[in-house]
Design a protein around this nucleic acid. Structure first.
Lengths: 135, 135, 135, 135
DNA sequence: GTGGTCTAGACCACA
DNA sequence: GTGGTCTAGACCACA
């Protein structure tokens, strides 16, 4: 299955789901025009409330990531990031800095940190690669 | 001023503040033994409630970043995480994943991402090294 | 009722509550996965403010004793301290020293003290064992 | 020196001092009639404010542990615990239980716990023994 | 001066 | 329903 929820992560379920859709879109697992899973079956499969899935989709629609065709379902839109290259880099650096600062406080050295980063990149690529083969 | 709050960010104020203290420690702006701003004046300056600053400091204390001497104030501790290797790794992976997902949202590819990570590691090393040499 | 507060003890209410949750966990009255009382009803029952109960729970969460599922409630975690061996030992020695000093105040000699310690260890083992067998 | 303050312990300094006097009395390092160190030199030696020492002595006097002879200094009184044997045991069990519960949450097993208890008993006996020889 | 505790009450996010 | 954040303000303990 494409999406997995960690109920103990503390991260809101609807955000986990929205992030995973965004990730699938960015990694190519979902391509423009592709249909998203319907709300009811997906909610059942993930064992979450339908409202939670609907909220995730609503968030994605409001951000222009997906669009809803009434009666037909939700589909991935063309990817056109609303930010300039410079703004995007600044946003990303903020996230990277938080990880670097955390590594400092957790006394994780540079080599170990880079190894972990590569590990996580592999992990996400593997996940989306597996999904691609399923298409 | 050392710290600044973005009231529109949606991120809880106390977490913004705690993150900024961690950032100051990682970049060498705050060094072990240094006093942190007193709660009351800082709260006034940031225009937040005393309790909100206190909550940020409490979080930092519970994570071993600062310590409080009763009646005297709060001070930056030696960098010595109280958590097990396993817990530290889990905390760090959470941060890394957020950066990785953000990179994908923003369509930054693996090589560019790793280059940015190295750049930020260099940046923090340079900064904290420079501060040390100034003493 | 499971918990009770002594308002005259001088010990902070939130610490009394956190200690009692820990006691319930150690004695088997609360088991991993069990839900804790919801904050609002518990606050009403104990006649304290919601925030005070929330503070007790936050302390327990930061120490890995409980976890909170957003929108659902708080639950007892598997007993798995997030702290390093060194930190755990330091925390424990603090508690032991208080008991040792109290024994001296009360003129309880070493043999009687050790006998009491063994008695209490037996007591907790018996209690948590009995609870397990009841399942 | 007889007393030592840990400024980082989080425990109020005056309480640390009062406890150490009580401990010295219980262990025989201080005997009824013995003079306590004068406030000023002691404050200097411990590098604390004179008020802090005075507060510790005031607490001890109010509890009948010491008495003040104006112009002469403070002296240890006859030790007569105001509690019955039963009450004393109940007080002590409360302290012991807190240590036992803490051991449970820190996953320190019975043998290790008992070893630690013996270690701390030795530590305190050694401390007071050394003081005795100094008399 | 310092930080800590607690209340009353508002408002929000989430399931 | 659940917990989380934040404020305003009182009162306390400590150095």
């Amino acid at each position: 299955m494409m999406f997995q929820i960690d109920f103990k992560s503390g991260k809101p379920v609807y955000l986990q789901l929205a992030d995973q859709v965004r990730y699938a879109a960015a990694s190519g697992a979902l391509r423009p025009g592709d249909p998203l899973p319907s709300i009811r079956p997906l909610a059942e499969e993930l064992r979450v409330n339908r409202n939670t899935v609907a909220k995730a989709y609503a968030e994605l629609e409001s951000q222009g990531v997906i669009e809803t065709a009434p009666g037909k379902g939700c589909f991935l839109k063309e990817n056109n990031s609303p930010f300039t290259k410079q703004v995007r880099q600044k946003l990303l650096i903020t996230e990277i800095d938080e990880a670097v600062v955390m590594a400092h406080h957790l006394q994780v050295d540079r080599d170990r940190f880079l190894a972990l980063v590569n590990e996580r990149l592999d992990y996400f690529e593997r996940k989306s690669g597996a999904t691609k083969r399923d298409d």
